[in-house]
C-alpha cells in the first residue's frame, strides 16, 4: 500500500516499522506492515476488532516477535522494556475494593518494574502530584482506581504511562467503552500532550471519527493489510477497497466519515464529497 511520504529522514522517526509480518499458529495476522511515526505526531491505528491492532502493539512493545521485517524505536532495534515507550493497555478490570489509589497507579509508572519497596516518599509524591495535575486528575489522587469511571481510569493510566517521560505513547483502544463526553476529553488531552510535550501519540481505535480533529496521520488495518498516510490519502474508496479486497464506499456526512461495504460500483444514492481536511469517518463494521 502507499507508504508514508518520505519527506523526512528515516533517522528522525521515533517509530519505524518496516515490512513487518507476523504468523500466529499458521495464520498471517500482519502482512508487510510499514509506516513511520515522527516525534510529536498524532497517529491513529484504525481497524475493526481482530484486524491485528493489538498484535502490532505487542510487536512494538517487544512482547511478540515479528516473523519478518524490522522495527526501530528511536532509531534503535527493539528491546523489551524500552524506556522510550509509554503504554496504556486496553481497559483494565479492577475490583472496586482493591486497595490501589490513583496515585499508587501513577507511582508504579515511575518504578513499578523495580525490586524492593519504594523509598524517597517526598520526591515520589511530588512527581506523582505534578503528573496528575498534567492530566487534570489531581482530584482523583486518593480514590481507589477500581471505583473510577472509564474516562477517569484512562486519565490515570495515561499519567502512569507519561510519568517515565516516554517519547512515544501507545494506547490500545482507550476510547472503547467511554461515553461521548469522556471520549472527547481523552482525545483532547492526548492531542495536548502530543503538541506541548512533543510526545508521539499512537492510538488504536475501531472508529476513526473521534480522532479526526486531532490526527496527523493514520494507519488503517483490514484483513492483516495496512495503508498509511494522512486521512485524505487513506480514507478513499480505491485505497480501502484494495485493503479489504472488496468494493468499499466512503461516505462523508457532515464532516464525518462512513465506510460501507457495497455492491459492485457506487450505489444509487450519491453523497457530495467534502474536502479531505475535515473528513471524519464512522467505520461501519465490514464483513
Amino acid at each position: 500500500m502507499s507508504g508514508p511520504t518520505l519527506d523526512e529522514s528515516a533517522d528522525d522517526a521515533i517509530l519505524d516499522v518496516d515490512g513487518v509480518s507476523v504468523w500466529l499458529s499458521g495464520r498471517e495476522v500482519l502482512h508487510d506492515v510499514r509506516f513511520r511515526i515522527m516525534p510529536g505526531e498524532f497517529t491513529g491505528l484504525i481497524g475493526s476488532n481482530g484486524a491485528g491492532k493489538t498484535t502490532l502493539f505487542r510487536v512494538i512493545l517487544g512482547l511478540q516477535a515479528a516473523s519478518t521485517g524490522s522495527v526501530l524505536v528511536g532509531g534503535r532495534p527493539l528491546t523489551r522494556r524500552n524506556p522510550i515507550i509509554g503504554y496504556v493497555p486496553q481497559k483494565i478490570f479492577l475490583d472496586p475494593d482493591m486497595p490501589l489509589r490513583a496515585r499508587d497507579v501513577v507511582a508504579l509508572g515511575l518504578d513499578g518494574h523495580r525490586l524492593g519497596v519504594p523509598l524517597g516518599w517526598g520526591r515520589r509524591r511530588k512527581a506523582v502530584d505534578a503528573m496528575l495535575d498534567a492530566v487534570d486528575a489531581r482530584r482523583l489522587a486518593d480514590a481507589r482506581v477500581g471505583s473510577l469511571s472509564g474516562g477517569e481510569q484512562q486519565r490515570v493510566l495515561i499519567a502512569h504511562a507519561l510519568i517515565s517521560r516516554p517519547r512515544l505513547l501507545l494506547l490500545d483502544e482507550p476510547l472503547a467503552n467511554l461515553d461521548i463526553g469522556a471520549e472527547g476529553e481523552v482525545v483532547a488531552l492526548l492531542a495536548r500532550i502530543a503538541r506541548e510535550q512533543r510526545i508521539a501519540v499512537f492510538i488504536s481505535a475501531h472508529d476513526v471519527n473521534p480522532l479526526l480533529p486531532v490526527m496527523d496521520r493514520l494507519v488503517y488495518m483490514a484483513a492483516g493489510n495496512t495503508a498509511s498516510g494522512t486521512t485524505a490519502e487513506v480514507i478513499r474508496p480505491e485505497v480501502l477497497s484494495a485493503l479489504y479486497g472488496q468494493h468499499v464506499d466512503v461516505l462523508r456526512v457532515h464532516g464525518r466519515i462512513l465506510v460501507v461495504a457495497g455492491a459492485e460500483g457506487p450505489s444509487g444514492v450519491t453523497f457530495e464529497e467534502t474536502d479531505g481536511a475535515a473528513v471524519g469517518p464512522d467505520i461501519v463494521a465490514l464483513r
Binding site: 512482547l63 522494556r81 515507550i85 493497555p89 483494565i92 497507579v105 518494574h113
Partner: peptide, 14 residues
C-alpha cells in the same frame, strides 16, 4: 502490584 494492575502492562515494562 503492577502485575495485578495489568499483566500486559507489567510485561511491557519488563
Amino acid at each position: 502490584l503492577l502485575s495485578s494492575l495489568s499483566p500486559d502492562l507489567a510485561a511491557a515494562r519488563g
